[in-house]
Design a protein around this nucleic acid. Sequence first.
DNA 1: GTCAGTGCAAATCTTTTGCATAGCT
DNA 2: AGCTATGCAAAAGATTTGCACTGAC
Lengths: 146, 146
Amino acid sequence: MNNKVISDISEKLREKECKFTSRREHILKVLLENKGKHLCAEEIYNLVKQKAPDVGIATVYRTLELFQEFDIINSMDFGDGRKRYEFGGVEGMNHHHHHLICTKCGAITEVNEDLLEELENRVSKQYDFNITNHQLKIFGICRKCV
Amino acid sequence: MNNKVISDISEKLREKECKFTSRREHILKVLLENKGKHLCAEEIYNLVKQKAPDVGIATVYRTLELFQEFDIINSMDFGDGRKRYEFGGVEGMNHHHHHLICTKCGAITEVNEDLLEELENRVSKQYDFNITNHQLKIFGICRKCV
DNA sequence: GTCAGTGCAAATCTTTTGCATAGCT
DNA sequence: AGCTATGCAAAAGATTTGCACTGAC
């Protein structure tokens, strides 16, 4: 299943004259294998290093930026001073994206349903705003920390 | 009106053995005078410098952190690599907090109604999660950029 | 062969920290 | 006096950039 995803993305890059190098493939695989984990650049770097020990962290950053431009991944920030990245689906439609953030233990839970459609319709009309994406962070105390 | 707010906050700090110094007052005033503008630390620093030329940027950062601990302000990140700050109301209940972010011109529009109550009720039950706050960022193209 | 991709090290940018001094109470 | 607040400069941490080399096509 991941193979299909990887070859789709490979093609997507090639179409725009970008190469799908082994470095980029390794980085993509790490992201695919850690869906929902919100890795930061350095964590990705460390994981990629296990497979390809001679990568540089600059390549990781450059590749993550590239993947963002291609809507392959999304970046987010949970307030700890580093960007975190998440695989965003092949279609680029990453519109189902809510996170519960426990302010006590820091656990992040994904909410995978898209619950904002009505709200978006209202806002879109009221503000004459052409919505392409959204991010909802919900802060609170998780069940374990009560 | 702002005077009431300022004296309330002054008291709030004193209660917890913190001083409400002239530096802190200047910083608070800048935040009050720029509600809805999402200033970053350096912008605040520059504005405060006009009134009190000998402040240091470290004080600005330290004060912003203090204000956050007291729930006087909120910090957020719009993806440009710096934290941005916003006055959060005296009651600390800053629960009406949505932003429309134009991905073309970068304009940020505030949506002041809280539109998430039903959604929160559902999520809260389903995930056994005790919600204290939320942040919603809606990305898209604003009316001027269409 | 050509041009994009990459590693390394240095540079940049934001934020934090250490320390000696200033200023409330 | 005693303790917090502050300015300055240095440090830290994340990310970006310059440059020479590598590797895909």
